[in-house]
Write a protein that binds this DNA or RNA. Structure first.
Length: 502
RNA sequence: GGUAUCGUGGCCGAGUGGUUAGGCACAGGUCUGCAAAACCUGCUACAGCGGUUCGAAUCCGCUCGAUACCUCCA
């Protein structure tokens, strides 16, 4: 598999359509994804966004690209509705130092990312670790005349930016500039601004602010979009390939990010902007205030009124991949149950497929219709991912392939219908898609002590086979029922019994 | 109020001018000592109303509904 063989199309928020993708630097991709603000536990919606970009990251790597994947940790600078810094607020409630809060939730976030089997980013920069870079960027924007200082705070001049670079502001969020200016809502803390559309890039600290730094303008802290502009520039360059994040970040976060980058260097940051869509719960936005919410841990344990049972992390990941990343995805108990069965079936099919032994001597050198159908379905899976990372299409193709696996194993295909090399190809492709690209794990087989269990199971199934040979159904059924009670399912096939957990 | 996205069968969810998505559920069948699994067959679709077109679920308009964003939440 080489890069050139797979023409990728990616939906670019800037143009509102799918565009052929080629990186700036052949063979290398720079990708920046907005990371979490670490002031509370990881939100399930975050998980979906990062699972989506994990598949994108994995597919790039699979295709042979070298990817520098940067995902930040925001540990400073976000205001709450009451004008208080989130980090400072969290710390006050918990009686902890701000950096202690950040550390606690950063570790929790990393745990969750590991549970969902996402690959770590290449660089995970922290906002607090890049204050000098942010100050430099504020200075550059000031030097370019696109910001102004008021009482120690610095504001980005949106109207001037629009005059200097027409057509840029609003291009990420699809917002009409005139409408932005028509916004009449009364907003807090904007008395210093020349215009409501302007936004702070440096804030002078008030007495209650804890996380503050010295700067040429005041003791204060950077504005709430600046870190991503500064850190993406530092690690990926002024212009890079892909910038991603949740779709709720389009405005104002990403819009202002673009403005800041233009303001600093006069050039566009990312060429492609990608946005993952929201997760809904029972058709509604998740919201703590009205109880329409579920945490990842509640989802895993089943300890929530919204689910009848717990669903494992890989079931949840599979569930997420059943939908395209740009569609909203509705979490319901029924949909999760369907995902659980679909996931287990796919894993069982893979185990069956990998256990098939192929006798190369059966191969007469011809290519059958079945061979061609299997190869075509593998290609369908690739084409699904080529087309803006459509994981739903890829999973559909794997389902189709799974049906061939079972037919072959059951002897329901004509002799020689599948060539040995096609089966080998299928084995590789199946594993590659499930584990390398889609990032799933076979949880049933992931338990410790597998060798012991395998040995025991073989012994038990041997004894049961003996009983069955003598038509001792009582013993046979007793073994099967007891195993079922222990969480192991026995399936009698033509060539003996197989078993699986769950 | 403004803006954007979307409305697909019992449920979830792809697709997007003429051709099977897929998963789950359901019904019948094959196989099996029975069961499970698997395989086969069937089943209920494109919110509504107009328009464009030889032809629309797919394009356009309107209506209704949903969701999101509108100074920070992925």
């Amino acid at each position: 598999m080489t890069i050139e063989q797979r023409p990728l199309k990616i939906y670019n928020t800037l143009s509102g359509q799918k565009e052929p993708f080629a990186p700036l630097e052949p063979g290398h991709i720079g990708m920046y994804v907005c990371g979490p603000t670490v002031y509370s536990d990881a939100h399930l919606g975050n998980c979906r966004t990062y699972v989506s970009f994990d598949v994108i990251h994995r597919y790039f790597r699979h295709l042979g690209y070298r990817v520098r994947y940067v995902r930040n940790i925001t540990d400073v600078g976000h205001l709450t509705d009451d004008g208080e810094d989130r980090m400072a607020k969290g710390s006050r409630v918990a009686q902890l130092e701000p950096m202690e809060v950040a550390q606690k939730y950063t570790l929790g976030f990393h745990d969750m990312m590991r549970i969902f089997n996402t690959l770590p980013p290449s660089i995970e920069p922290r906002a607090t670790g890049h204050i000098p870079e942010q100050i430099e960027m504020v200075q550059a924007i000031l030097d370019n005349g696109l910001a102004y200082e008021r009482n120690g705070s610095v504001y980005f001049n949106v109207r001037k930016f629009i005059e200097n670079k027409p057509g840029v502001y609003g291009s990420v969020s699809g917002r009409v500039v005139e409408d932005l200016f028509a916004e009449t809502r009364e907003l807090k803390n904007q008395d210093e601004k020349d215009h409501p559309a302007d936004f702070a890039i440096w804030m002078k600290a008030r007495p209650q602010d804890i996380m503050v730094w010295n700067s040429p303008w005041s003791v204060g802290f950077p504005g709430w979009h600046l870190e991503c502009s500064a850190m993406s520039t530092k690690y990926l360059g002024q212009t890079f390939d892909i910038h991603g994040g949740g779709s709720d970040l389009k405005f104002p976060h990403h819009e202002n990010e673009v403005a800041q980058n233009f303001g600093a260097c006069g050039c566009a940051p990312a060429r492609f902007w990608m946005h993952a869509n929201m997760l809904l719960l029972n058709g509604k936005k998740m919201s703590k205030s009205d109880g329409n919410t579920i945490t990842p841990h509640e989802l895993f344990s089943g300890d929530s009124p919204h689910v009848t049972k717990g669903y494992s992390p890989m079931v949840v990941r599979f569930f997420m991949l059943m939908a395209h990343y740009r569609s909203t995805l509705d979490i319901t108990d029924e949909a999760l149950q369907a995902a659980e069965k679909g996931y287990r079936k796919l894993m069982d099919t893979n185990q069956l497929l990998q256990s098939l032994s192929v006798d190369a001597s059966d191969y007469d050198g011809s290519e059958s219709d079945t061979d061609r159908a299997v190869l075509a379905a593998i290609e369908d899976a690739y084409q699904g991912l080529d087309d803006d990372f459509n994981t739903a299409i890829a999973l559909a193709a794997l389902s189709e392939l799974g049906s061939y696996v079972h037919k072959y194993a059951n002897g329901q295909l004509p002799a020689g219908a599948l060539s040995p090399w096609v089966i080998e190809r299928l084995k590789t492709a199946f594993q590659t898609f499930l584990f390398d690209i889609l990032g799933l794990q076979d949880e049933a087989g992931a338990g410790a002590d597998n060798q012991t269990v395998d040995g025991l199971m073989q012994l038990i199934l041997d004894i049961r086979a003996g009983a069955r040979a003598q038509k001792d159904w009582a013993t046979s059924d007793k073994i099967r029922d007891a195993l079922a009670a222990a969480g192991i399912t026995v399936k009698d096939g033509k060539d003996g019994a197989t078993w699986s957990r769950g």
